[in-house]
């Protein structure tokens, strides 16, 4: 079972934005009690609506906590060479060393991260210089060329300026850059959003290729369920700062349990079927005032008494399929009670 070794675990992770506006304290609970266990050699997806805390979760996992974001509680462990490292106990310098070599982060809108006035190969050199020492300029360029070639991108782009490439190409170059130092974990935040379908396919092809070459872990955040279906091995559904369902991707799509997940999947149009599709009723909750009990209950057609009072815990519904829903936990009896 060497494949199932975990590489990233979190315990009761909480990170809130604490704002102080004219003496009035405002707390945005962006990540609230998240327990994750991400394994080696898998693509783990996180899905959810905008404003559900997906990006904040990634930032917290990466150790990018800056005010007003604060780590309230919990720990993030990376497993490196069989040893657990608590990233929030490391010094700044130690954390910096881990970045790019062990963990890499592709931020949202990565296509606009390049310096517009230097050629892309200079960006690659800047990048390599800060992590590898004692290499000549030519050696560094050769490394960059070899890397680009291996990922199936045209080598001539290294001599181009960022504005000469299309958005999709820049996005792919940014992703290739993140994989340059062979990190064990790559965090990708909405890598395909704002790209059109053909380019999107190229980006997904590249991410898949990188994962196959390096045999590492990718944590992919996007709201596009189609991308998740195509790329991820396991999927977590996030709602109002919490993971509410987690399972193998096939299981989530084949047998969604949480009413929210059901809506997410069933609302998407499919080819060859023009039957009417309903989207999730209501609006996503504000993270400043999360509803009591289960945060989905105001939008849930199956909500009953306990849902308004108590937040359900994530529990295993069999087959490693975890879900946080009273309806599932209380079993079929409760379901019958609501129907009648």
């Amino acid at each position: 079972m060497a494949d199932d070794m975990s590489v990233l675990t979190t315990q009761n992770l909480k990170s809130f934005y604490v704002l102080n506006i004219y003496g009035a304290k405002k707390v945005v609970k962006a990540v609230d009690k998240v327990d994750l266990e991400i394994r080696e050699n898998e693509i783990y997806g996180i899905a959810g609506e905008s404003g559900c805390g997906k990006t904040t979760l990634l930032k917290t996992l990466y150790g990018l906590i800056k005010p007003p974001l604060r780590l309230i509680d919990g720990k993030v462990f990376y497993v490196r060479d069989g040893q657990e490292i608590d990233i929030y106990s490391l010094s700044k310098e130690e954390r910096r060393k881990l970045r790019w070599e062990y963990i890499a982060y592709i931020p949202q809108g990565a296509m606009s991260v390049f310096n517009p006035v230097i050629k892309l190969k200079e960006t690659y050199r800047d990048f390599l210089d800060s992590h590898l020492t004692g290499k000549t300029k030519e050696e560094v360029f050769d490394m960059a060329r070899e890397h680009i070639n291996k990922l199936g991108l045209p080598v001539k782009i290294l001599d181009a300026y960022p504005h000469q490439l299309s958005g999709g190409m820049r996005q792919r170059v940014a992703i290739a850059l993140a994989a340059l130092l062979k990190p064990r974990i790559i965090f990708a935040d909405e890598p395909t959003t704002a790209l059109d379908v053909v380019v999107q396919r190229g980006v997904i092809q590249l991410l898949k290729g990188i994962q196959e070459i390096l045999g590492n872990t990718i944590v992919l955040v996007t709201h596009d369920m189609g991308v998740h279906a195509n790329l991820t091995d396991r999927l977590g559904i996030m709602y109002a700062g919490k993971i509410i369902e987690e399972a193998i991707t096939e299981e989530i799509f084949g047998n969604p349990l949480h009413p929210y997940t059901k809506y997410l999947i069933n609302s998407l149009p499919k080819f060859g079927d023009t039957g009417s599709r309903e989207s999730v009723p209501g609006n996503p909750p504000s993270l400043v005032s999360i509803p009591s009990g289960c945060s989905f209950h105001p939008r849930c057609p199956y909500a009953f008494a306990i849902c308004t009072e108590q937040m359900p815990e994530l529990f295993d519904a069999g087959n490693h399929h975890k879900v946080a829903c009273w309806l599932i936990k209380e079993g079929k009896d409760a379901k019958d009670a609501i129907v009648s």
Binding site: Q200, G226, A229, T249, F253, I265, L268
Partner: peptide, 9 residues
Amino acid sequence: SIPEVDPSK
């Protein structure tokens, strides 16, 4: 190029 919402495809 459209990602279908079906992991079997």
